[in-house]
């Protein structure tokens, strides 16, 4: 009996997941499938400001500190092998391949993703979305689409800024503080970073994360149960689900890109 119950609930969970995925897919399709309008451009710029510009300080400071910590820890390990010169590639490759896209996506989920969910949830619970519909304006195109594109553009930008600032932070610790020769820091770093292998993959990763995090945030807001509890629950769900999705996808992408 117990076994049957568990099986049944597992089945229900699976069905719910598939249904949710279908709804989320339809939402995204409705938002971005049709030709974008010229009128939508100011909305997109405004969202770029809210999603991108307002996350800049967070990304900048986090990138700097993570680069510095990475360099400090790396130096302590590498100096044991007498290869502290390799600090450059260590910092740069960790940031480009993993930490840049992943940490940026996690911070983005917490900063911008939760804000998107709360904003759209609030719009739904104050009937602003219904009101748009009654004005014969499709809320998917008016509300969801500009936010989606803003997220997709912002996150890779932020990841690149994060990585560049992080490498600079590593340079500060390695060269200014620990006294590695600046020339060898850069030359070894440059010799080991590949354009195709590292930078392109960094951008691909952050693009994938951008789509997933923004999508989850928008869907959670769009399907919110329109009351305060519903909104707070949806906001939490956005952060939890998009973080998990980012980490799981990161493993998959790493396996495909570097797993060979």
């Amino acid at each position: 009996m117990n076994m049957t119950n568990q099986l049944a609930s597992l089945g229900r969970l699976t069905i719910d997941f598939v249904v949710g995925l279908g709804r989320a897919g339809l939402m995204l399709w409705g938002a971005i499938a049709r030709k974008p309008r010229i009128k939508g451009f100011p909305l997109f710029v405004r969202q770029l400001y809210i999603v991108g510009v307002q996350s800049m300080v967070l990304i900048f400071v986090s990138g700097l500190f993570i680069g510095m910590v990475l360099a400090l820890q790396g130096y302590n390990i590498l100096v044991g092998f007498g290869t502290e010169e390799s600090l450059g590639p260590m910092v740069a490759l960790s940031l480009l391949r993993e930490l840049g896209p992943v940490v940026t996506a996690l911070l983005f989920a917490g900063r911008a993703g939760s804000a998107l969910t709360a904003e759209i949830g609030l719009m739904k619970s104050t009937e602003q979305l219904s009101s748009l519909e009654m004005m014969a304006i499709d809320p998917l195109r008016q509300i969801i689409a500009p936010r989606f594109w803003a997220g997709v553009v912002s996150l890779p930008m932020l990841a690149l800024i994060f990585t560049a600032v992080g490498i600079y932070g590593g340079h500060v610790v390695g060269v200014e503080w620990k006294g590695i020769d600046s020339g060898s820091f850069w030359s070894i770093l440059q010799a080991s970073v590949e354009w195709r292998e590292d930078i392109v993959n960094c951008i691909i990763k952050s693009l994938v994360f951008a789509v997933v995090v923004t999508w989850i945030a928008l869907y959670r807001g769009y399907r919110v149960i329109p009351n305060p509890e519903g909104i707070s629950k949806a906001t939490t769900q956005t952060v939890v689900q998009s973080s998990l999705a980012v980490l799981a996808l990161d493993f998959l992408l790493t396996a495909v890109m570097f797993g060979r």
Partner: peptide, 19 residues
């Protein structure tokens, strides 16, 4: 449906002004 909705409008309980 959208053409019909241009001929009707609705005043929501909360006002639903765009915040």
């Amino acid at each position: 449906l959208f053409n019909m909705r241009k001929r009707m409008s609705m005043l929501f309980q909360s006002g639903a002004l765009f915040t």
